[in-house]
Design a protein around this nucleic acid. Structure first.
Lengths: 340, 340
DNA sequence: TAGCCTGAGTATAACGATAAACTCAAGGGC
DNA sequence: GCCCTTGAGTTTATCGTTATACTCAGGCTA
């Protein structure tokens, strides 16, 4: 790898002059020298050393994308995090930043030696409240938090309007004539999103004047298998239910299968609305009506927020709430009489 | 951030002595000094600067994971690449390396300024032959290539035994009494894996003495929608076909739906075997019999190969072919008469 | 007692780049 | 003719670490 020194020797100037040319500070250098140095740099295929630069500059142009890692399995990338990370990567790249991907395991001294890279900032995805506090204490760089289940925010956060998601899903079911609507999820969990979604669900019920006790099928995990189990339970123990709102698409897809296995069809017997709009939602049978989030917008907001904070060095707590909307597919049956 | 200098000042020794303590070179330092310096380092929460280290050392402890990026959409992470990257991340982390995730777009000056980080090595996932040649020319560090569609290999590669996969899938269908078996994929494409799988398919047919011209449904893209289309075509134009081998699970799942839409059921009317064992294979209806690959093994092999090459600095072309196996689910019907 | 080794450091230079201060000749104003 | 400015660089110091060579006092050997 060619260095400034190599170019300087060949061009018979000092490294400083070459540095000035490379960085476009032409007011210090004669046009003839600029041309000569530029040509030599191109010929030697010169690329400035990022490590040397970040040593002298305050900035490393390195952004961490941090995810929780279990001891045995490493990081987990859910299918929407995959999209989010893809968008983050592209935006950072376009802006001249580099992405350090890193799993943070609990045992790992919180962030281990990650500090050594002098990150300009980091995006945290999917951590619990306490973990975020730890990370925040370790890094003095700007941090943006995504997919946080945190209850109180004293850092930059981007999250969905989960409450409105629950509300829209439930209202849609009600609009299709359903009144016995189950909630499939964990309203009381540490997973704050489900609590919010549950509140939206309740609000919609109340607005429609549905006063009976809501039916909740708790799901301690978010997985297909859990959904199947929930579906079987729902089908067998709650025959009066005509619709369900599931707080995750994996659950919703499992639900369809669980219901089917106990002889109940979706949407003919039970209607379902999911949440997340994962790939499986579109390809499920029937295709799943679900709450969709603008993942690209989420990622872009996070990157914008982070880079803006890095550049202005004003790191203020701030919460950005993104809209969600319902996307209509074929998992809900309209119970309303047809108006002629 | 505390530096060696800060510690040195407080311990009243030179930075060199501190450096020796930090790096465990105790033969140069008295036990008393070791204790004192260690304590101060801990108290100041010292972490060595990776940038400074990689400037002086030859090694940066940084490994690139490079993926193709389209101009508009950024990198694409298929669901098995997600698993692969997760495992790569964990293994690198355990070994003290850091992962730089980076999309490479064609327009991007091949690898742009990525060289500036002085990567110790890189893992390339999913590039075309020509792109790999370009990247190889840009980087003088060890490279391991995964999911390559390359036809000839003059670098380290880890790939599946695609031919055997095609063979196993087809043989399984034959074993279940099928003789009219379609191939759904692109045998002639640049995508070399399909060609291999096609060869395995042909080999199995031949072995079973099936001599009729094979039925091929070409699929220029690998997507659910493409599969649906193929399924409709298959169902309508080839009513004699009782089974199909699809070279990707997305195609297979689409196929099920396409067949269904023209009135043919899987597995009752048509049996299907897929390839890849994506998450959607297990949750499809019916659950898809498919060819599965050991993704963790693939990732681990790549990391081992890379780190070993980095440490021994012996970069030799080498091809590692991993076994695949068929995983039996419910998308194949047994046509054999039941033996009493 | 001169010479030598050893333990415990220190001093210097280097990695690649940049910021800031300095040099030094030519040209301009009055 | 003298002083000041300007253009086109150069010099020096610095970022945080590490490798290598050096110092220097005390103890040991012959």
């Amino acid at each position: 790898m060619a260095t400034l020194k190599d170019i300087a020797k060949e061009a018979e100037v000092t490294v400083m002059t070459v540095s000035n040319v490379i960085n476009g500070k032409f007011d210090k250098v004669s046009p003839a020298t600029v041309a000569r140095v530029t040509e030599i740099a191109r010929r030697l295929d010169y690329v400035p050393s990022a490590t040397a630069r970040s040593l002298v500059a305050k900035s490393s142009r390195l952004v961490g994308v941090l995810l929780p890692a279990s001891e045995s399995e490493g990081i987990f990338l859910s299918s929407h995090n995959v999209v989010v990370i893809g968008v983050i990567e592209r935006l950072l790249r376009e802006k001249g930043y580099y992405l350090l991907l890193r799993g943070i395991s609990a045992a790992d001294g919180v962030a281990g030696t990650l500090k050594s890279w002098n990150l300009d900032g980091a995006i945290l995805i999917g951590f619990l409240d306490s973990e975020i506090q730890n990370l925040r204490a370790t890094f003095d760089t700007p941090l943006v938090v995504l997919e946080s289940y945190a209850t109180h925010v004293d850092f930059m956060t981007v999250r969905l309007n989960d409450r409105d998601g629950g509300y829209q899903a439930t209202k849609y079911l009600i609009g299709n004539g359903h009144r016995k609507i189950a909630f499939v999820g964990t309203p009381m969990a540490e997973r704050g999103v489900d609590r919010e979604r549950y509140e939206g669900y309740l609000a919609a019920l109340q607005e429609a004047g549905i006063t009976e006790e809501p039916t909740v099928i708790p799901c301690p995990a978010v997985s297909h298998a859990m959904g199947v189990e929930a579906g079987m339970r729902l089908g067998q123990k709650f025959p009066e239910i005509t619709a369900a709102f599931a707080t995750a698409d994996q659950l919703a897809v499992g639900l369809i299968e669980g219901l089917y296995s106990v002889g109940r069809q979706v949407p003919d017997d039970v209607s379902i609305v999911g949440f997340d709009d994962l790939e499986i939602a579109a390809t499920a049978r029937p295709p799943l009506t679900t709450i969709t989030q603008n993942l690209k917008q989420k990622a872009a907001t996070a990157v914008d927020l982070l880079l803006h904070t890095i550049q202005s060095s004003l790191d203020q707590p701030q919460e950005t709430v993104l809209d969600v909307k319902l996307i209509e597919r074929k998992s809900v049956r309209n119970l309303n009489p047809v108006v002629p």
